[in-house]
Computed example of a mutant assay.
Amino acid sequence: MRVNIDEIKEAGLRRSWDVTREAIDEMVAGDPAGYRARGATHLDAKLDKIERRVRVDAHGKAELTVPCGRCLSPVSLDVPVDFELTLVPADEYVDEPRSDKEKGGAPVGGSFEPGEAEEDVYAGKVIDLDPIVREQLLLALPSYPVCKEDCKGLCPVCGANLNDRECGCDRHVPDPRWASLKNVKL
């Protein structure tokens, strides 16, 4: 969704829109867990203009499905897409390396001001919210989704789902450090 900043008046601007199932699938396509959208995602946003900066407060919920990381059963998730973000004009944004000013040291890698963690840059008169929604959705995804906390997974020998039944396979894995002693004849 695109918003022209001239449309944002003193009282703010409220917008609602649906992100299609296909667009959500495209947003999560690179995730190794294999997320897929179950339907469209509805988003509500309030935009406020503070001088030249734009404050975005958005809320939504993405309905996704993913294979369980242990047993591969389908898992349905409702992932919240809630964020507050300040958009700063590109000409105001200064991206210079941080340094230890008291000691006169070199730039400190990975450091940032806490206020800048919730800032992003925009250029021109139109703000495209879709890349921001994509980023926030990817940040909200669980990295290792499971169907239940005590999921037993799959048998490494026969591939049976151990949540359904015990297969009876010998899953004992000997310590590889002692494996060569198995060949010693006494």
Results as ranks from 00 to 15, higher is better:
M1G: 14
V3G: 09
I5M: 07
E7P: 02
I8D: 04
I8N: 05
G12Y: 02
R14L: 03
R14I: 01
R15F: 01
R15H: 10
S16W: 00
W17E: 10
W17D: 12
D18H: 02
T20W: 01
T20Y: 01
R21N: 06
E22R: 13
E22N: 09
E22S: 12
A23F: 00
A23Q: 15
A23K: 13
I24D: 05
D25H: 03
D25S: 04
E26I: 00
V28I: 05
V28D: 06
V28Q: 07
A29C: 03
A29E: 12
G30I: 00
P32A: 08
A33N: 07
A33L: 02
G34I: 00
G39V: 02
A40L: 01
H42M: 11
D44H: 13
A45M: 06
L47G: 08
L47S: 08
D48Q: 13
K49T: 01
E51D: 14
R53E: 14
V54H: 14
V54P: 13
V56P: 05
G60L: 11
G60D: 04
G60N: 09
L64K: 07
V66N: 05
V66Q: 04
C68V: 04
G69L: 07
C71D: 03
L72S: 08
S73V: 10
S73M: 05
P74Q: 11
P74L: 04
V75P: 05
V75A: 09
D78R: 06
V79M: 06
V79G: 05
V79N: 06
V79F: 00
D82E: 14
D82A: 14
V88M: 10
P89W: 04
Y93A: 15
V94A: 13
V94E: 13
D95E: 15
P97H: 08
P97I: 00
R98T: 13
K101A: 15
K103N: 14
G104R: 06
G105P: 10
V108F: 08
G109W: 03
G110C: 10
G110D: 14
G110A: 09
S111M: 14
S111Y: 14
S111H: 13
F112C: 11
E113H: 15
E113M: 12
P114R: 03
P114C: 04
P114I: 01
E116M: 12
A117F: 15
E118A: 13
E119Y: 09
V121I: 15
Y122L: 07
D128N: 14
L129W: 08
D130L: 15
I132S: 02
I132A: 03
L138A: 02
L139I: 08
A140M: 03
L141N: 07
L141A: 05
Y144A: 10
Y144M: 11
P145W: 09
C147F: 10
C151Y: 12
C151A: 11
C151M: 10
K152C: 08
K152M: 12
G153M: 12
G153H: 13
G153E: 11
V157G: 09
G159D: 01
A160K: 07
A160Y: 00
N161A: 07
D164L: 08
R165G: 01
R165A: 14
E166P: 02
C167H: 07
C167F: 02
D170P: 04
D170L: 11
D170F: 13
P176S: 06
R177C: 08
L181G: 05
L181V: 03
N183R: 14
N183A: 11
